[in-house]
């Protein structure tokens, strides 16, 4: 088969994802930014707002952990590779930028999906069983893709210092938590907040999670799924273009 063939490139993307998972699963940022941070935010919020129902909190925690985890790994992979001096060897391989991005994204998506087990498990222990489990799984997968592509977009600045990228992405990620209905329902936000909420991909996943876990929703379900899809396509296309331009500046 020609090395340019899409199936051949897909296999190579899978190899990249496998490598990413092997290398990054135990690294600090994944665990700290993906799991502990949302958990502590959640605990702080749950302690301060005794009026909120457990299903509301669990769906918020789910949205947060998937969002934080999927955006934790993908932005730092390339700076990390550049710093570890493995990037030059990697891009000398017969793979396209799309393949490289797809591989990194796939790894990040798997992390996002995997981490979802934690909040769902906590929910189950507390007796919260999702009403629409299949829809929830679909939502988690789509959201992981969307957030991973956002993460990749965040890593396009040509810096080789992973912590710089983490700072930059935290700057964007934390505000999003507050306008995306995670802790405060979108309906209760001021008008400006509602406008911003519409622009945040996290809003739509939070809404899907609420619907699937407790049966309430702000937007129609198809709108939620469509929005996540559009964001995914947009972020991915942008990430591929920008990375193709910046990757040679990293080495």
């Amino acid at each position: 088969m020609s090395p340019e063939h899409i199936i051949e490139q897909a296999k190579r993307a899978f190899a990249i994802a496998k490598k990413d998972i092997r290398i990054y699963y135990a690294k600090g940022p994944v665990v700290i930014f993906g799991l502990f941070m949302p958990l502590f935010l959640f605990l702080a919020f749950a302690a301060g707002n005794r009026g909120l129902s457990m299903p509301f909190l669990i769906s918020g925690l789910l949205a947060m952990t998937v969002f934080f985890t999927a955006t934790a790994v993908s932005p730092v992979i390339q700076p990390w590779e550049a710093q570890a001096r493995t990037l030059e060897r990697l891009i000398a391989c017969p793979i396209t930028m799309k393949t490289l991005i797809a591989g990194d994204m796939f790894a990040s998506v798997l992390f996002g999906i995997g981490i979802a087990i934690v909040p769902l498990g906590i929910g189950l222990i507390l007796g919260i069983i999702p009403i629409h489990p299949l829809l929830l799984i679909a939502g988690i997968i789509l959201a992981s893709i969307c957030f991973s592509s956002l993460g990749l977009l965040l890593s396009t600045p040509a810096t080789n210092v992973p912590s710089n990228i983490m700072m930059l992405s935290s700057l964007l990620k934390f505000p999003l938590i507050f306008i995306s209905g995670v802790f405060i329902p979108v309906e209760q936000l001021p008008f400006v907040g509602q406008v911003l909420a519409v622009c945040s991909p996290l809003t739509y996943f939070t809404d899907i999670a609420r619907y699937c876990i407790m049966g309430t929703n702000t937007f129609p379900l198809p709108v939620n799924f469509a929005a996540l899809t559009v964001f995914s396509v947009l972020f991915t296309a942008l990430a591929v273009r920008l990375h193709a331009r910046t990757v040679s500046r990293r080495i």
């Binding site: 092997r22 290398i23 570890a84 493995t86 030059e88 060897r89």
Partner: peptide, 14 residues
């Protein structure tokens, strides 16, 4: 092509 870059590393965690 096979490539041995000037300052390249293998993945040290692998």
């Amino acid at each position: 092509c096979g490539v041995v870059p000037e300052t390249a590393n293998a993945y040290s965690d692998l």
